[in-house]
Design a binder for these strands. Sequence first.
DNA 1: CTGTTAGCGCGTTCAT
DNA 2: ATGAACGCGCTAACAG
Lengths: 340, 340
Amino acid sequence: MSHATIRDVAREAEVSVASVSRVLNGHDNVRPALRLKVQEVASRLGYVPHAGARSLSLSRTGTIGVVLPDLHGEFYSELLRGMDREASDRGLHMLLSVMHDRAGGIQALHAMRGRVDGLVVMAPQVDPDRLLAHLPPLTPTVLVNCAPHHERRAELRIDNVAGAAAMVDHLIAVGRRRIVHIAGPEGNIDADERRQGAAMAAARAGATFRVLSGDFREASGIAAAATLLPDIDGVDAIFAANDMMAIGAMVTLKRAGVAVPSQVAIAGFDDVPLARLVTPALTTLGIDIAGFGARAVTRLIGLIAGGDDDATEHRAPILIVRDTTPIITSPNNRAQQGEI
Amino acid sequence: MSHATIRDVAREAEVSVASVSRVLNGHDNVRPALRLKVQEVASRLGYVPHAGARSLSLSRTGTIGVVLPDLHGEFYSELLRGMDREASDRGLHMLLSVMHDRAGGIQALHAMRGRVDGLVVMAPQVDPDRLLAHLPPLTPTVLVNCAPHHERRAELRIDNVAGAAAMVDHLIAVGRRRIVHIAGPEGNIDADERRQGAAMAAARAGATFRVLSGDFREASGIAAAATLLPDIDGVDAIFAANDMMAIGAMVTLKRAGVAVPSQVAIAGFDDVPLARLVTPALTTLGIDIAGFGARAVTRLIGLIAGGDDDATEHRAPILIVRDTTPIITSPNNRAQQGEI
DNA sequence: CTGTTAGCGCGTTCAT
DNA sequence: ATGAACGCGCTAACAG
């Protein structure tokens, strides 16, 4: 025996399918007796509407598609958690799709057709023009952390510039004046924006600002710190473009006998789980990842509802998550500040 | 202008919808010229079949439903990663649903009707009879880590009892005799089985065994360790029911100046990626989480295909993944062992 | 208030 | 090899 359909319910309750539909969708134009009868039969038969058929006739699926570049690590579980929270609060389901690097990843987008009411796409690794070309043309879509492009689209990004600037402002506020930035790989949008924000804040305050190159890996943080060691007295703060490089730098300095963070403060970016477990805990920048995911969904829901989304880029604020940097107030330092 | 349908393609190519359908589904009973024409028009119109309509007529959705109790932490991202790997290899999509604790969580199951071809349900926190009663009767389903029940069903479980016992045996083998277990939430089947396996092994060896309550979150590990601090000399090993609580305990003890793991060994359960990054690396129990998820999906696919699944419980073995616990051989400890 | 009926978009007989 | 017509299960517009 197959699943009960709306017809089975109608027959059993001796009414029309239309009435059953009305009852089940909570329309109020039904006689109470009929309503009761239908409800009784429906629950007795264990009737559950067929979502596929329903969506075909409503042309609404009650599902949003989420396209992610990967699922590795806590970032994605947090992101999904936030998205799910918002989606399920609004009675929406989530169809998850990972855009694997291998060829044809793009077609994951096509497969969403007829399955979802809207899309949240996070694809920092995909050529933006190619991505946009393959996006379902009529499906509301929110782009998350995608590379810059030329279309006007609803978009959500992390505010790297403001975050990095806030960190440098902070370092300066606690008395650091000779700042080294370990940058991420050239051409990476996040890395470039972070360097730019940091440089801007340093320039604004008239602090010494030097940039070393890195590649987001711990090893490059180690290498950069090694470069600094001979002249470490000329440095009182290192701000790396991500946590792993910061940790690499921290380990290297500590091993060389440099006092961290009193002599040289170290700050990172991302707030990876490891950041608070190293000693001293890493001062870093983080976003509320789950909140970020929830916000993407909220915006998508607005788009689906046809609200007046401004179809432009929103930037999620970044906050200083943890601060283990002591304030420098020694006469020596005051003198240095006076030099400026 | 709306999305192109099969009719648009048919009209434009001057053939019938049946022929378009045949071409697009790779049937071979079509004249090459017609095939070419249809393909040309389809791609020119950017035609993509409507998955909803397709599934209604095929009564196959090409989607599997994944119901999870939570998304917090790396365990779930790994599990999802494994499931996704297997599902996308088989051309299946994943509909993700979190069974929140709040009322109506059960109805997440109903909502899957007509959306999926099969279900992977992980629900360690739900009353099994209630769960089974609400499972879609005709939908192939693989139960993952659900509480014991009386139906014969395809099921996948982690062998918590044997794993926990193995860990306690190990701690005892390296000379620890006064063991504290930080348990997971009461009523959670995983938590209960782990506690039970640990208690059994401790009793068998005649070791001191004390249980503190926790809830699988890091904070509860911190709290439990704080409780122990005043009398930490009476403890030489802490075995937490999961890694996050173990890490919380580790951080707390280290911060209080307790030597970890020489004075107090700490062990966890799950082997989350973070476990090997803390210092010292966490001794823990693990399964190949992604592999576990993949296996659940593989089995579900077999069920959907109507293969001869044995509709019974499979248990994934658990291994001690990493061991940083030094062996205690001091006279002091020998004396203690001699006391028994 | 209630029933009848026409789609939603597609795959698939059954004819031809 | 091709086309016409039906049905998948449901909602909504239209009659009554």
